[in-house]
Design a protein around this nucleic acid. Structure first.
Ligand SMILES: [Zn+2]
Ligand SMILES: [Zn+2]
Ligand SMILES: [Zn+2]
Ligand SMILES: [Zn+2]
Lengths: 173, 173
DNA sequence: GTTGTAATTGTTATATCATAACAAAAGTTT
DNA sequence: AAACTTTTGTTATGATATAACAATTACAAC
């Protein structure tokens, strides 16, 4: 299963018409720098580059895919390298793990406290991160009724994205 | 902490006071038999026993844990054995996979069309399957607003279960 | 600027989860 | 029984993730 690596993409599902993804990456990296300074965390070369590479990807990136990219650029190519970077970025709230894909995605709202609802397309595997505050509140209340204290930070929802619903475009794997 | 294997336990979190889990297992197996006959599927020895073992476990069971149990009973001990059984049971709607745990859980509503909302305890790792119809409808509508056709059959929610919230009981791993 | 300390990275090995491919056996239909 | 389909056995490998410990680097104190 080969991945699409073209430049003409749709981010993770956002319907931005003339969306320059470079701006996203720059913005995400700038936010990351600030957050790390604030939290006294060090955004080292490999961590920073890992974050960039995750953002450059058009969909969630697997750990070993990321490791391969890092290795190409001269970083150490053993698994702990990438898993350490991922752990750091996850703990810093700069990326999310999509459990159902074993893959990692840049967080679009790293600076805000938020619940990430991930709309994962079964067809093209793009992922869009949304913030369903009202539904989340209802969910917390519902769970509380059953004595469960909901703490989930991310919720994964699968289905068909707008593009893949349209037969004209079809799914692009 | 050792796992509670008595009959008086909390299933996957349901607040049944004097709940005999053997009844659950029997009921689940009976339902499975019926469903398989209806669908022209064969619930072979290994598939049936796998389903029983999954139900006998008090929390989601990993594939290799299940494989070990099957092997103890004389079944073939190679991975395909268990993954084939799991595939069958998943396709038949008799079990669910909890992606965030890489583990498998008997479905409590195999005979009904339903959305499984899994309340996964971060502490004791028990899982309760609930059916939040109203919230799910809201979620479908919300996703649709963004052009996304929600098809998720299972949604995983993490947090703290009723037991683990209480310091008196504490978490039982 | 040297020394001590903590954080990060390098390295090797291994654990854990899952599937591919093909052969053998068992069940089903004719 | 023969032909066919489904299931199971078997071997090998792929894919994801972590443990353990050594070496290096960053940083602060002196
Ligand atoms: Zn986020
Ligand atoms: Zn799609
Ligand atoms: Zn279910
Ligand atoms: Zn618990």
């Amino acid at each position: 299963m080969k991945k699409n690596t073209s430049d003409n993409h749709d981010h993770h599902g956002e319907q931005s018409v003339s969306h320059n993804h470079n701006d996203c990456i720059d913005s995400a990296l700038a936010t990351a720098e600030i957050l790390c300074v604030e939290q006294g965390q060090r955004l080292t070369k490999v961590r920073r580059r890992a974050l960039e590479l995750i953002w450059e990807s058009h969909r969630p990136l697997g750990a070993y895919q990321l490791l391969a990219k890092l290795a190409e650029e001269g970083f150490n190519s053993a698994p702990p390298t990438v898993y350490r970077a991922l752990d750091f970025l996850l703990n810093a709230g700069l990326i999310h793990k999509v459990e159902s894909m074993n893959a990692y995605l840049g967080c679009s709202h790293a600076d805000k406290d938020h619940q990430g609802y991930f709309l994962i397309c079964d067809d093209c595997h793009n992922v869009m991160e949304s913030d369903y505050q009202d539904i989340h509140s209802a969910l917390i209340a519902k769970a509380a009724q059953q004595g469960f204290e909901l703490r989930a930070k991310t919720i994964e929802l699968t289905g068909l994205c707008a593009d893949c619903k349209m037969p004209s475009e079809g799914g692009r794997t």
